[in-house]
């Protein structure tokens, strides 16, 4: 996971706790919400986005360097704090990009604060209960297996993570999984109160799905499409659940086109 060096690290003290974020670039703001396993740092995907945008990548509250809201019980709580983060940063006309679980939080946020958003990009987003299939349950897999399943294949996983994940990555996964369990152990990764609230959403929405996503079934993309009025689906070839790692240029271009 190569990192560029030009980004800056920011920190903001909200009443609910400290939030850390990474930032780079200028232009229309893009906020990227990470997967349930935490933000692995500044990525080539963020670099591509930063070529035309002010890109902000927060550690969601309770993940990474952001303080845990011990009272939080639901991704909706995380969305509420995140909308306050946008407010405190003075961000308007935001393109909000949510990856996996981050897509779940982004969708929740969009239902409660659409006027701040210029666009919503849900990438392999959780949040809706699949009608037929199931969202892969990370709690019943080892960290390593779950992350491996997030890639299109084992070879790509090894290319990124190596034969054995480094200690800091393992620690990130470990802490992230605890926070994930605190807010979405049950029901796992969906909220039956989300879909009814998406119906009036007046935000241009792009639904991106990796062609080989094994974590969140593609039917969820169709369900988001059916629920949100102004939306379309893009399927990215050669990507699994972690489209931002496997096809960063293509995903950045899609975000740019939204």
């Amino acid at each position: 996971m190569a990192e560029a060096v030009s980004y800056t690290e920011g920190e903001l003290a909200l009443a609910t706790g400290k939030i850390k974020y990474l930032e780079q670039g200028s232009g229309p703001p893009v906020v990227v919400l990470h997967h349930s396993w935490g933000s692995p740092g500044w990525l080539p995907f963020h670099d591509r986005l930063a070529e035309g945008h002010r890109v902000i990548v927060p550690d969601m509250p309770g993940w990474g360097g952001s303080e845990r809201p011990a009272w939080a019980r639901d991704p909706r709580d995380i969305a509420i704090i995140t909308t306050r983060l946008l407010s405190r940063l003075g961000l308007v006309n935001v393109k909000l990009v949510g990856l996996g679980f981050g897509g779940y939080v982004a969708a929740e946020l969009a239902t409660m604060n659409p006027s701040r958003l210029a666009g919503l990009v849900l990438v392999g987003a959780a949040g809706l209960q699949p009608k037929d299939d199931e969202i892969m349950d990370q709690m019943m897999l080892s960290h390593r297996k779950y992350i491996e399943e997030s890639f299109r294949d084992a070879e790509t996983y090894h290319d990124y993570v190596g034969e054995e994940p480094p200690d800091d990555i393992r620690q990130l996964w470990d802490l992230s999984r605890e926070m994930t369990a605190r807010v979405t152990w049950k029901p796992y990764m969906f909220n039956r109160r989300l879909e009814p609230l998406l119906c009036d959403l007046d935000v241009p929405t792009l639904i991106v799905w990796g062609e080989k996503d094994k974590v969140v079934p593609f039917e969820c993309a169709k369900q988001f499409e059916a629920a949100i009025p102004n939306t379309r689906i893009e399927v990215v070839e050669g990507a699994g659940h972690v489209v931002e790692l496997e096809q960063p240029d293509q995903l950045a271009a899609l975000v740019g086109s939204t």
Partner: peptide, 10 residues
């Protein structure tokens, strides 16, 4: 035993 189950998050 499956270690990740016996050592669930938190």
């Amino acid at each position: 035993v499956r270690p990740f189950i016996q050592n669930l998050p938190g």
